[in-house]
């Protein structure tokens, strides 16, 4: 009988970590300035140096790689959690409207901030507020007999998404030109503004969210059987779901506040991993974190090097890479799959 052992978990983590390190290395030596891989590695080993090479490696590529890794991991783990909570492999922060809520919060501050007297620096905070507010709203709207039904949660999410999109478009319409370009980049998902302090914010919430998800990974397995079965198998369902939703919306809020609406990471990474590793969340959660990070690092490397000195938004890459891949996988596995 196959079952999870510490050895198997270790092997999977090691392999995932290896993939992440390779992707980070590719990202480190690739970029529009055309410095050689050797020079880039040399600059990495001498952080105290100054000059353009040190700036490019230490103050441009490294913060951006770390931010991409943090955002990718956050979105992938959030996807795994939402899929288990809603027992739907197609659930995702975007479908639920949590990303949309975060974006609406952030964009409100970008557009209205000068009128109500707060700077653009408050955008990340507003994004957290938006994500948590959306989650609370979903919970409040969908609660029946003190429990949350997945169907109602999804439906409420769909409706809220429509509301958030309308709000974002409304704000974009009243915004000026420069703010318009910023909103556009938020909507498509973009990491070009990477700064170390952003990485720290994302990292802190990732650590919290990942810690919660790992410690409740067994509970996520039970939730896949349904709330009732999970309760009958000894899980404090409502309490753990609340903790999971809170942790997830914090991760999503942090990720959206620095990168905007990067799509597909939370959907595609857990899907791929489930096909390779199976659905056990004790494997899936940590592997999604590592490979979600690797995936977004790779996509962002493409985004910043494909057009030379001109930038592409990373969200366009993830959607272009993720969409077709997702369809192919869905099709190839439809015969032995889990029609849910």
């Amino acid at each position: 009988m196959k079952h999870l052992t510490a050895g198997r978990l270790g092997a999977v983590l090691l392999a995932s970590l290896g993939v992440l390190v390779v992707c980070l290395a590719i990202g480190l030596v690739t970029g529009p300035s055309g410095i050689s891989p050797g020079a880039a590695l040399d600059a990495l080993l001498h952080p105290a140096e100054s000059g353009a090479l040190a700036d490019i490696v230490w103050r441009i590529r490294v913060p951006r790689l770390l931010l991409a890794a943090g955002v990718g991991a956050s979105l992938a783990v959030a996807g795994v959690i939402f899929q288990a909570l809603l027992r739907n492999p197609l659930a995702d922060p975007f479908i639920l409207g949590v990303s949309g809520g975060a974006a609406l919060g952030g964009i409100s501050v970008l557009v209205l901030g000068t009128w109500i007297g707060v700077g653009a620096g408050a955008a990340p905070l507003a994004a957290f507020a938006g994500a948590i507010g959306t989650t609370l709203l979903l919970y409040g709207m969908a609660a029946v007999r003190g429990r949350v039904s997945a169907t109602q949660l999804l439906l409420t999410g769909v409706v809220f998404n429509a509301f958030a999109s309308a709000g974002i478009v409304f704000l974009a319409s009243i915004a000026g030109l420069a703010d318009g370009s910023r909103i556009f980049l938020w909507l498509i998902g973009n990491l070009s503004a990477a700064r170390t302090d952003m990485g720290i914010v994302v990292g802190v919430f990732l650590v919290v969210g990942l810690g919660v998800a790992l410690s409740l990974a067994r509970g996520l397995n039970l939730l896949a059987l349904g709330d009732e079965a999970a309760a009958q198998l000894g899980m404090a369902v409502e309490r753990q779901k609340k903790i999971l939703l809170l942790a997830t919306s914090l991760m999503v809020g942090a990720a959206v506040s620095v990168s905007g609406l990067v799509g597909f990471v939370g959907l595609i990474v857990p899907h791929l991993l489930r096909l390779v590793l199976g659905p056990d969340h004790r494997l899936l959660v940590p592997a999604s974190a590592l490979l979600g990070a690797a995936f977004l690092v790779l996509c962002d490397t493409l985004a910043r090097s494909l057009l030379g000195g001109r930038e592409l938004p990373v969200g366009a890459i993830t959607a272009l890479v993720g969409g077709p891949l997702f369809l192919v996988l869905l099709r190839r596995n439809s015969d032995r799959s889990f029609t849910a």
Partner: peptide, 11 residues
């Protein structure tokens, strides 16, 4: 054009 900061530093 929209440029990347890396391009600017390298330029």
């Amino acid at each position: 054009p929209r440029a990347s900061i890396e391009w600017l530093v390298a330029a």
